[in-house]
């Protein structure tokens, strides 16, 4: 695995991989969106059920993104590999984006279904906190000028966050059961039938691939930027 972590080999490999990855993502999105729109309307949710197909995968990828970021941070911290730092750094804005997407589509779904854009429900609240964790991580990266230090500090923050995330999740769940009287809204209802499951899974695959496609693009840009800076420094010297 670490053989490919050499930036030069990474650039070669990712350059070859990227068109395929992008094409597969596009095809999956086309198929997923087609199925999402041709699926029959839910007997309770009506057409709003279609929001689920773009909402749920976004939430999944948002959480996966934090896990990926923490894992890359750990590798960067332990193996001191700059490419892992680049991966963690570039995963954060994507994760924040998917978190925001999940929050926005969730509230758009909540309006017709729950009658409100926002509910202090356990999952909603912990996603809002996840967004803040992402933003804090990005802000820390941007605030420290020295790249090596910034990478290490951000990695420590990501790991503290990943240890704390289950506790935050638990405390928020605990808190909503404490306020049980207010949360009359329940998600779910009957178990999902196959007509809805297929578009959901295909969209999940599409979102996941989109995350990694964009991640590769961002990582390549970052590596090229670093090379450019190094060249500029060498030219000035």
């Amino acid at each position: 695995m670490f053989g490919y972590a050499n930036p030069k080999r990474f650039m070669e490999l990712s350059g070859r991989l990227l068109p395929w990855l992008g094409a597969t993502t596009a095809i999956l999105f086309a198929a997923g969106l087609y199925l999402s729109f041709t699926a029959p309307p839910d007997y309770r949710q009506g057409d709003t059920v279609r929001i689920m197909f773009i909402h749920v995968p976004a939430a999944w990828v948002a959480m996966m993104g934090y896990g990926f970021m923490a894992l890359a941070s750990l590798i960067g911290l332990v193996n001191r590999h700059p490419l892992a730092d680049v991966a963690a750094k570039q995963a954060a804005p994507l994760g924040a984006l998917f978190t925001a997407l999940a929050l926005i589509t969730g509230s758009l779904w909540g309006r017709p279904m729950w009658g409100t854009y926002w509910q202090w429900d356990g999952r909603l609240t912990s996603f809002l906190l996840l967004l803040f964790l992402y933003l804090g991580y990005i802000a820390l990266w941007n605030a420290i000028e020295n790249e090596v230090r910034a990478a290490k500090a951000a990695a420590i923050l990501a790991l503290v966050g990943v240890v704390n995330l289950p506790i935050i999740e638990f405390s928020v769940q605990w808190w909503t059961t404490l306020h049980q009287g207010e949360s009359i809204f329940r998600r779910g209802g009957p178990t999902i039938s196959a007509v809805f499951l297929w578009p959901l899974f295909i969209m999940a695959a599409a979102y996941t691939l989109l995350f990694f496609t964009l991640l590769l693009v961002r990582m390549r840009t970052e590596i090229l930027e670093r090379r450019m800076r190094a060249l500029a420094l060498a030219a000035n010297a």
Binding site: L129, F132, L133, L135, G136, A139, L140, L157, V160, G161, N164, I167, I168, F170, S171, V172, W174, W175
Partner: peptide
């Protein structure tokens, strides 16, 4: 921004 999300459990409990 860094600290407050991490401190939510303290406030909640």
């Amino acid at each position: 921004l860094l600290v407050l999300p991490l401190l939510t459990p303290v406030v909640i409990f």
